[in-house]
Design a protein around this nucleic acid. Sequence first.
DNA 1: CGTCTTCGTGCTAACGTTAGCACTACTGGA
DNA 2: TCCAGTAGTGCTAACGTTAGCACGAAGACG
Lengths: 343, 343
Amino acid sequence: MITTRDIAERLGISVSTVGRALSDDPRISEETKFRVRQAASEMGYVGNRAARMMRGASSNVVALVIPDIRNSFYSTIAHELSKNMEAEGFQLMLSETDDDRMVELRHLRELSANRVAGVIIVPTARPHGDSVKLLRGLPHLQLLRRHPSLGSQWFGVDDHEALRRGTAHLVAQGHTRIAYVGGPTELPTGAERLRGFRSALSEGGLPDDAGRTELAPPSSVDHGRQAVRRLLKGPDAPTALVLGSIQLTLGVLEELSEQGVKVPGELSVVGFGDEPGFSWWGPGLTTIGLPIQEMATGCALWLMRRLKAKGDNDGPYTSVSPGSLVVRGSTAPPDGKTPATSD
Amino acid sequence: MITTRDIAERLGISVSTVGRALSDDPRISEETKFRVRQAASEMGYVGNRAARMMRGASSNVVALVIPDIRNSFYSTIAHELSKNMEAEGFQLMLSETDDDRMVELRHLRELSANRVAGVIIVPTARPHGDSVKLLRGLPHLQLLRRHPSLGSQWFGVDDHEALRRGTAHLVAQGHTRIAYVGGPTELPTGAERLRGFRSALSEGGLPDDAGRTELAPPSSVDHGRQAVRRLLKGPDAPTALVLGSIQLTLGVLEELSEQGVKVPGELSVVGFGDEPGFSWWGPGLTTIGLPIQEMATGCALWLMRRLKAKGDNDGPYTSVSPGSLVVRGSTAPPDGKTPATSD
DNA sequence: CGTCTTCGTGCTAACGTTAGCACTACTGGA
DNA sequence: TCCAGTAGTGCTAACGTTAGCACGAAGACG
């Protein structure tokens, strides 16, 4: 690799002068600058950021720590972040945890060793103690999920309200046997979504146990399929189903298609998230849409500002985005009844 | 940040001893090692990779340069790569080019400045001259797309064969007016796919202009929608359509759904790639599936081996994976005819 | 003509880590 | 007893870059 020293030797000047010329120092004459730049370009010089970092410069890498990039929710986040940060000269490091706290820990160790400038993390349910320590040394921001030990800077969705609305839609159509399949309540997001579901039930005057709830491990497409099989059995099977995660929704849709379940005839379905394909699934999936782009952009801006400010901790920060119900064809009143009210 | 020096001072020993203890040098006594590790752990020491790199150690970061992570083909690649490399202690840097050669160049500059260990790249149609220079200095591997200036190490799909098979399926069903909508022939992949389409036509005894071909910019969902509108107009509209990119397929499916086109009654469709949703779209999409996982794993293994070997250039390397036709319900003989032969 | 300023450049140290060499204190054999 | 060998540790330089200080030349001003 070419260094400033190579350039200096070739031009018969000192490394300092080369360094200053390349950083456009006003003390260097225009003629020298020109010759240095010329030589640098010819020789294919590329500055070594590792060396700069040794001199106190900060890294230009921000890490995104998520469960699984194949989940299109996260890939959209990654895309938006990347776009926003590229504009500011930052690069994106991608770390997948697979919802395994030990993998998460290994990644955080590497990120810390690499002295990344910042971290945006969707934490696992119970991060390892060392992960907590490592994050303390890095500007970071929690996304979607929130764990108290990781600080109070968080960008998330109003999960309670999102599920309340999705469920209320079904209640308003007259459903009384409504099932919920969501993620574990270990995660605050999971707990909030379940709570939102229950709120809607009680607001609709339905007893709590009118809802059959099933909790699955996070990121489990397969569990969605299994849940469908279990729910459709039995005499008082639910007439409607609300989902609490994208992956579960994908699994549910696949299974419903395979089994040829009539939607919304046999079962009304409210999905979670809005993926390409949800609109053309069966009669079109009514679903709880999330403002992914806005969230990602918000995250990026917050972090960029935080990194530039160099102020250490600028207090707690919480940004909550609402979900919005996208009504398509997968929901209808049970047995053809007319809905009491429309929401 | 804690350094080896901090540890050394606290224990009243030299930095060398600390460094050696942490790297488990056999010359250091077990007792000293124990004390050092203890102190390091208590003080939250994390080695500084930038400093190690200055001493000649190589980076543990591999970059993936792709058009758009939201394309689930690429997110699957990213996932598989990440998984394989995490096992070897490597981290993944994600760079999105948006198929813009200048963005690609900016990313490559950053990657080079960061001295990433290697690069896996899906190049833009005509990479910038400087991009070519930069990649020369980095172990790299082209994926899917291939540009001659970027060397001869390439992992790809047998695009010609993939499209030949997809088209042959329609020819065998008796279609004579078959349209193709694919990416630009500027990209070798695009050219190969078009060639595969034409091969199948001529093998089926159909004249070349039996096929209406449309070429779109890469990664263009929207163009897929437009193409449908154009193709369905006119008296001798095609009875079948073959697609040459995932994004185009997504657009086409959306538009066909919206316009309520009967598939395969009015139009038979062979898609490209296999996404979640393709199986439940309309009657199920017959599509050209790609062995994404195998390719990603192959790439990861090749690069890992290349980086460990430290041998500079181990000659040209090309790995070609075949596509496989996944037959679902979106293809049928035109006007109810029985297929001549089934393939 | 001497001093003061300005311009352009060079020298040196420092960032954190590691490898080579040097040094000390033992141990064992002649 | 003396030397060789070895175990354990310290000192120093080096990686590439940059910031502080110093230096020489040239011009400005009294």
